[in-house]
Amino acid sequence: MKRGNVISAAGLLAVLLAAVPLAAFGLPPGDPARGEKVYGRCFACHAIDRDRTGPRHAGLFGRRAGSIPGFPYSPAMKKAGANGLVWNEETLDKFLQNPTKFIPGTRMTYAGVKNDQDRADLLAYLKEATKEAKQ
């Protein structure tokens, strides 16, 4: 195999691996830049680095639901966390698609991000933005 082919294969593998977490449960690969625009829909209630009507998103991935100290979560969200719900690509995908169906009683009274590509883009953005931000 020529060197160029090796590099191309490695690049392709990296792209595929990056896409796997979302593609594994049916979402197309996400575009973080486009996801930042989708995040504008969340901006009435959320920010990356501060609690607002909704909790901050910094450190979101891997965080147990309803677990930011002092944030006034709904009893339903606290219960979901106590029952083991942890935010990752899969759980966020389900929640964002229809928040009040995934967690009845949540205070996130939003119909959801219905478009698969929008949700994939949003998750791609959140994964980058929440990793860099201070918790």
Binding site: G40, C42, F43, A44, C45, Y110, A111
Partner: peptide
């Protein structure tokens, strides 16, 4: 940005 977010929030709340 706040106003744009508010528009989206109400749009997402109305069907509920």
């Amino acid at each position: 940005d706040l106003e744009k977010g508010a528009v989206s929030a109400y749009l997402g709340a109305i069907p509920l």
